[in-house]
Amino acid sequence: MNALLDLVLDAHGGLRRWRAARTIHAEGSIGGLLWSLRGQEEIFAEADITADVQQQRLVFEGFTDPGLRGVFTPDRVVIEQKDCEVLADRNAPRDAFAGHRADTPWVPLHALYFAGYAMWNYLTAPYLLTRPGVVVEELEFWREPDEDWRRLRARFPEALATHCLEQVFYYDTAGLLRRHDYAPDVLGGTPAAHFSEHHVRASGLVFPTHRFVVPVQDDGRAASEPVLITIDLADISVT
């Protein structure tokens, strides 16, 4: 395994603990400009999330209504009642973004797919990088004003629902995730920088509790605005 990835896995709780984990639960809020641009403002203002660790599946309890939940898997998204009665669903949900422009409005199933795969990726990283078919390599240092960050470039298999096939992860000297660059295919491939802060330990694993996403400038530096997405999590637990 890559030496930097070994350091990163240890910093986030260790590979053995990640392999033993079954679910991650978190509560919080997901906001930012993106949701209002797509006509889905405050759809995740109160987010109750449970992610399966060993497979791509994530559930938002109270999705669009306190009595409903949204279920993401790569091949299908579902809005259902608590008794599992399906109210709306979509197979091959990624195909529903074809031809979208920056101002194309979404319906809740679009938001469920995008937030579902994104949050699953975020919550399971860095264990995400050990999945079959993922190839990582260390890049040159990235210089910040007060610290050099080490970087991993990851190439993902097409079968994995993620932002795009190639992404870059930035880590501080302790091995903690600080920045994550990607260009989401479902948003037209515009480069973005996703920053992670305020890490906490929960059930032996380490997670950032504050995240925000901004555009990337031509020189690779992050713009200060607009803030496209914010993620604030609390009450994180692992089973």
Rank of each mutant, 00 (worst) to 15 (best):
A3Q: 13
L4R: 05
L5I: 08
L5E: 02
D6T: 12
L9D: 04
L9F: 07
G14A: 06
G14C: 00
L15G: 05
L15Y: 04
R19I: 02
A21N: 01
A21H: 06
A21L: 02
A21Q: 06
R22D: 10
I24W: 00
A26D: 01
E27C: 07
G28Y: 01
I30L: 15
G31N: 04
G32I: 07
Q40Y: 00
Q40G: 04
E41Q: 13
A47G: 06
D48K: 04
T50I: 02
A51N: 11
V53H: 01
Q54V: 06
Q54F: 07
Q56K: 13
Q56S: 14
R57D: 11
R57V: 04
L58K: 03
F60P: 09
E61Y: 12
F63R: 00
F63Y: 12
T64W: 04
T64Y: 06
T64V: 15
D65E: 13
D65T: 04
P66G: 14
G67N: 01
L68P: 09
G70Y: 02
V71R: 14
V71Y: 11
V77E: 00
K82P: 11
D83Q: 12
E85C: 15
V86Q: 15
L87W: 10
L87Q: 13
D89H: 10
R90T: 04
N91S: 11
A92I: 00
A92F: 01
P93W: 00
R94T: 06
A96W: 08
G99L: 00
R101I: 03
A102G: 14
D103M: 06
T104Q: 04
H110K: 01
H110A: 00
H110G: 03
A111Q: 03
L112C: 10
G116E: 07
Y117P: 02
Y117R: 05
W120P: 05
W120D: 09
A125Y: 05
Y127R: 04
L128C: 03
L129F: 12
L129G: 10
L129D: 05
T130M: 13
R131M: 14
P132A: 15
P132T: 13
G133F: 15
G133Y: 15
V134I: 15
V135Q: 14
V135P: 02
E137S: 01
E138W: 11
E138L: 06
F141Q: 15
W142V: 03
R143C: 13
E144F: 11
P145T: 03
P145L: 09
D146V: 14
D146N: 09
D146M: 14
R151S: 11
R153P: 09
R153I: 03
R155P: 06
P157R: 10
P157A: 12
E158N: 13
E158Y: 03
H163L: 07
T173W: 10
A174H: 08
A174L: 12
R178E: 05
Y182D: 08
D185W: 07
D185C: 08
V186K: 05
L187F: 09
G189V: 04
A192K: 05
A193G: 12
H194W: 08
S196H: 11
E197K: 07
H199T: 05
V200S: 11
R201H: 00
A202P: 03
A202T: 05
S203N: 00
S203D: 06
V206N: 00
F207L: 02
R211V: 08
F212V: 07
V214I: 09
P215W: 12
V216F: 07
V216N: 05
D218P: 10
V227Q: 05
I229K: 01
T230G: 12
I231T: 09
S237D: 03
T239I: 00
